[in-house]
Simulated assay, not measured.
Amino acid sequence: MKLSTKGRYGLRSMVDIALNSNGDFIPLKQIAERQNISENYLEQVFSTLRKADLVKSVRGSQGGYALSKPASKITVGEVLRALEGELSITGDDNDEPGFEKNIEDCIKIAVWQEVNKSINAVVDSITLEDLVEQYKKLNAEFTFDFII
């Protein structure tokens, strides 16, 4: 499984909003600048996120985007599925094994379905709030406090 730039940039942008919004709407231009992503590309990503009801938007000079629900209620899995579709290590895992079991069906059941379950369990267990806290923790380690 390889995530596209749409999934990676979308997740980064969602964490950016969770980190910086404080309940306010954030202009896409600010997100694009902070994350070094094309604003035009983010418009496409956020159109999809809005349709999936993960963000809400307001037009105008004070407009922008905000999370549609608390960061603690949005999982990485929700964001990635909205942008990428179902998360699967192979493209054909939705096919049910045939009546006569063959080696391919054995591998599908014993390996790919289990890997998919694990991937989905991981991304569904991590929230945007978890990523914000991890980001803050990582940055706190590199913040030096000099007292004179």
Rank of each mutant, 00 (worst) to 15 (best):
F144Y: 14
I26F: 01
A121N: 11
D145M: 11
G98R: 09
R81P: 00
V76Y: 04
A121G: 08
V76R: 06
E133I: 13
F46V: 04
N120G: 01
N40D: 12
L11T: 05
A18M: 08
P70C: 06
K136G: 00
E39T: 13
L138F: 11
V111K: 07
F99W: 11
V15T: 09
P27M: 08
L138V: 12
K73Y: 11
D145P: 03
L138D: 14
I107G: 03
K101Q: 10
N116D: 09
K56V: 14
T75N: 02
I107N: 04
L49K: 04
K51D: 13
F142K: 15
A18K: 03
K51R: 15
A66S: 12
L131K: 03
R59I: 06
I74W: 03
P70R: 09
G91L: 05
T75C: 03
S38I: 07
V55E: 02
A110I: 05
L131V: 05
F99D: 09
L28K: 09
Q134P: 00
T48H: 07
N120H: 02
Y41K: 09
T127A: 02
D93E: 14
E33V: 13
G10K: 07
V45F: 02
I31C: 06
Q30C: 04
S118F: 10
D16T: 11
K136H: 09
G63D: 06
I147C: 12
E141P: 00
E43Y: 12
D130T: 06
S68L: 01
